[in-house]
Design a protein around this nucleic acid. Structure first.
Length: 197
DNA sequence: TAGAGGATTGAT
DNA sequence: TCAATCCTCTAC
């Protein structure tokens, strides 16, 4: 059992650094009494200052209002008609930054993840943002939930050295123009759970 | 109130 | 390469 990440960690103003630091940490959910957890192996940073972000130019809507709250909350939204995306809200109130968790390596409760996924194959069921949300039991009900809470939180996991971190551009945001070139996607080198290209 | 599109995935 | 599938935002 690792130590909880605290409010101070989430309120940092450099969202890309937070995204890097989240690699190797452990995401834990307790849904209907079922605990599942996984090591974070892939993240992407989003900031209100760039076009890839839902909160670009401080545009607040009903969907993304959680991002404008203080860091340390879950921002979950529904996309492509079938997938929930799990984000960690960072920075201070009215500074709408977030980190998208794109892939996990299962640690605990993988049998429950397979059950949620309705499969007997435990391979690659958390290697993508839509997939890990399903495996972890994450739905819109957790939107706005505190990460210093009892349903979902992040705790210290494995040590990651800078040499293990690969940096690339983000995925699926071609509409963002030159901001799509920002090197704000991070993943653990050679980890088989990172989402495939 | 209608229409378009999306921080994806998996099958063809 | 493309369909699934529906919520959200924008424009009328």
């Amino acid at each position: 059992m690792g130590r909880f990440l605290d409010q101070k960690f989430y309120e940092r103003s450099d969202v890309d650094k937070v995204a890097r630091k989240l690699l190797g940490k452990r995401l834990v959910t307790v849904i209907d009494g079922v605990m599942t957890s996984g090591t974070i192996v892939e993240t992407e940073a989003y900031s209100y200052a760039e076009r890839g972000c839902h909160a670009y130019q401080n545009r607040m809507t009903k969907r993304n209002e959680v991002m404008f709250g203080s860091g340390g909350h879950a921002y979950i939204y529904f996309c492509y008609g079938m997938h929930y995306m799990f984000n960690v809200v960072t920075n201070k109130k009215n500074r709408a930054d977030a980190v998208l968790i794109r892939a996990l390596q299962p640690v605990q409760g993988i049998e429950y993840m397979m059950e949620r996924y309705n499969t007997s194959n435990g391979k690659r069921i958390t290697s993508g943002p839509g997939k890990l949300a399903k495996a972890m039991g994450i739905t819109k009900k957790l939107n706005g939930a505190s990460l210093i809470g009892s349903e979902v939180w992040i705790e210290n996991g494995i040590e990651v050295s800078p040499r293990q971190i690969v940096t690339t551009t983000r995925i699926g945001i071609d509409y963002a123009g030159t901001d799509a070139l920002l090197p704000w996607r991070f993943y653990l080198k050679d980890n088989e759970w990172v989402s495939k290209k």
